[in-house]
Nucleic acid binder design. Structure first.
Lengths: 200, 200
DNA sequence: CTCAGCACTTAATCTAGGTTAATGACGGTG
DNA sequence: CACCGTCATTAACCTAGATTAAGTGCTGAG
């Protein structure tokens, strides 16, 4: 249990750092937070269902993905250590989730109650800061992604991916990378060598 | 000049309505705002250049678009009456604009100084509200767009476009619609009838 | 050790949409 | 009126990536 508190303090420090302000007075949230360990390939959230939790990643790696009507999965993002795999659009709109969330590795996560966070981000200044900063970062990220999907070829997106996600180098299976790029695993396998060897 | 004030009041009312709060104490901004009329196809912002203004659309229609290195333009969004064609990512990152802005029709615009808005959104509660709400709406919009680009075919995106932008029905030339969808005008022209006639 | 399952590769074929280029249909202007 | 520029259409051909279908290699459970 004292371990749990350590993780929560680590999260609060890390969030302070990310939003770029020193925060002293985090509200006590021990009652609405749980540190959990889950195996790889564990489903944390299913698209179309109501959101019950956000997840701060203490260790491990998770992916967010959309699903097409014919069952294909398209990866939206990957979140590793010290990031929150949250669902801001669900929080803003109070809608069911547009995407699913699944672990790629065994993970240690801090499970934050969705409803608790809803009241925190309205009433508690530090969490307000986390929320607003989160919205800004998501906006930037999504805009960059929009530009990539519209203006770049699969090859360019692949090279860009390697730069953007170098910190997760080797931890994301190739077929999940393909899915992030919006191409098939076969296409990525076919072109990979050529793409990596060519300049530009 | 009294006309100008009318437009600014209209803008403030409209913004209050959009962010869902009654705001009484808008700061006086008459000195950092200008009501301007511009012809169609007028360039308001060039990608890669520093942002100097945001634009509230009093009447008319503008488009935001990315540019590829080989000169192709990919439309990002269309903004009509009562929307702000702003550049939140530039504001957040203090970076040059990622996209260009151009009028599609003769427009009446309220030109808001970028720097003035930067200080307003930090210090003035109503503009803080506008900024935070704007971030949230952009986040939602961009996420929806990401999902569309990843999971839908050109046909599905076209039908979706007609639903989402029905308010601008007939005001956006077809080649700009194609560009928004991420296909060529020729491809849209070729498939349009079939796409519109088929169910789903 | 063996087998099953999963990630990845390879290759043949198919298709949506791109490219190029020619043709029309307007609408504005001299 | 004739001319031009802009947008839409059409058609012939091309290409990136999808689809399908075998295969390979590794790993982990029995």
């Amino acid at each position: 249990m004292s371990m749990e508190i350590d993780y929560i303090l680590q999260m609060q420090q890390e969030l302070s750092r990310q939003i770029g302000m020193e925060i002293e007075d985090w509200p006590d949230i021990y009652d609405s937070v749980k540190v959990i360990d889950v195996e790889a390939k564990h489903c944390l959230q299913r698209a179309g269902e109501a959101v019950t939790h956000h997840y701060f990643v203490v260790s491990g790696l998770v992916r967010l993905f959309y699903q097409t009507r014919n069952g294909k999965e398209l990866n939206k993002a990957f979140y590793g250590e010290n990031y929150i795999a949250g669902n801001l659009s669900a929080l803003i709109l109070n809608d069911p989730s547009r995407f699913s969330v699944e672990t790629l590795e065994p993970c240690k996560l801090i499970e934050l109650s969705f409803n608790k966070f809803r009241s925190l981000y309205i009433h508690s200044p530090p969490w307000q800061g986390v929320f607003n900063h989160g919205c800004q970062m998501m906006l930037i990220r999504n805009e960059r992604r929009e530009a990539e999907l519209l203006t770049m070829t699969a090859k360019q997106r692949f090279l860009q991916f390697n730069r953007n996600f170098s910190e997760y180098q080797g931890r994301i299976p190739q077929y999940h990378i393909a899915s992030y790029l919006g191409i098939t695993p076969e296409a990525l396998s076919k072109h990979k060598k050529q793409w990596l060897s060519s300049t530009e």
